[in-house]
Design a protein around this nucleic acid. Structure first.
Lengths: 177, 177
DNA sequence: TTAACCATGTAAATCGTTACATGATTCA
DNA sequence: TGAATCATGTAACGATTTACATGGTTAA
């Protein structure tokens, strides 16, 4: 139940956030880490409130609801962080394709690897732009958020370098080993 | 629909595989790339057969069904590889926790990052052991499978190095900046 | 003979995506 | 006044996980 804790955690960090705020925050802060759709967020907010982990602290214009975490919610965040083990689930669609690249010709395979490194380069650019847009402070969220941004950069550089290397291997093999 | 193409692609590479074979193959070959449960595999095999992309080529003891890809199935694999764009979906539960590590103390944060690098080290060991167990050949599957294994190694090394670095940052900050 | 392994299938619940639906407020 | 943005919610479908359920074959 990671989405639940992503939502709960964001509310813990930013008291007074609404579903709409959270939706934008997912893109801004958690984009490399966890994605969520609008429909998931509103659904989860309802369930978290029903379970007493958050509450509606205020209502604003246009039906806006501002949420606050409850004591039970904070306890649940600590429990999740310290008493459960995360799972390393690996699912990577571009990489899945690489595994089956023998089913098309070497030219096509090289093209697809080029497209992959170009795609990753684009993501890296986005991440750098994001980094520059964030008003970094001295608080915990900025500190740990910064560690995560650094991870994203390292990941994408590694990934891009690998795709370029792999493309070279494909070319060398096609050129007659 | 990546699971569908993972199953279809494996059958294309290894004619005569059964659901049970595929289940083990997912662990052996696609572990870093895509995971699947038994229940997903049998369900997808049924749907692929109903759609005419694979067929039951033989039946063995214990109700074993050996599948073969059809011409329509091969065409679908090529279409998927060349005419669709993969999505870069990022969901990483250990990393999600890092983002919220301000909600526990610095000691706990450091411990959790230690556990992360230890966990990754374990995965890296498994991958190296897997690499040594595979009977590498000169065919396409070995070649592209090898590129994917190399990716897995680079990924885990990067990830472990990052976790160690991050742990150092947490310590330095706790020690008074 | 019994434990390990081979082998398939279904059911229920949860999670995730896409699309639909509605309306208020702000600002140019 | 009209476009952009703020704001919430539901419905339908598809994907994933976990558990249940069953039985055949092989080898020590």
């Amino acid at each position: 139940m990671s989405l639940r804790h992503a939502v709960l955690g964001l509310i813990a960090e930013l008291e007074g956030a609404s579903g709409y705020d959270l939706l934008k925050l997912f893109d801004l802060s958690l984009a490399n880490v966890w994605t969520a759709t609008q429909s998931q967020i509103y659904g989860e907010l309802g369930r978290l409130a029903a379970d007493g982990l958050i509450r509606v602290a205020a209502e604003g214009p246009r039906g806006r609801k501002e949420y606050a975490i409850t004591e039970a919610g904070r306890a649940e965040m600590r429990r999740w962080l310290t008493e459960t083990r995360p799972r390393y689930l690996r699912r990577d669609e571009p990489l899945l394709r690489v595994f089956f690249l023998g089913q098309v010709g070497a030219d096509t395979a090289a093209e697809l690897l080029d497209a992959d490194s170009a795609g990753i380069d684009g993501l890296l650019d986005e991440l750098v732009a994001l980094d520059e847009r964030i008003p970094w402070k001295e608080d915990d969220l900025s500190f740990y958020g910064g560690l995560v941004i650094e991870y994203g950069k390292r990941f994408m550089e590694m990934r891009r370098d690998w795709a370029r290397w792999a493309r070279g291997e494909v070319e060398a093999r096609a050129a007659g080993d």
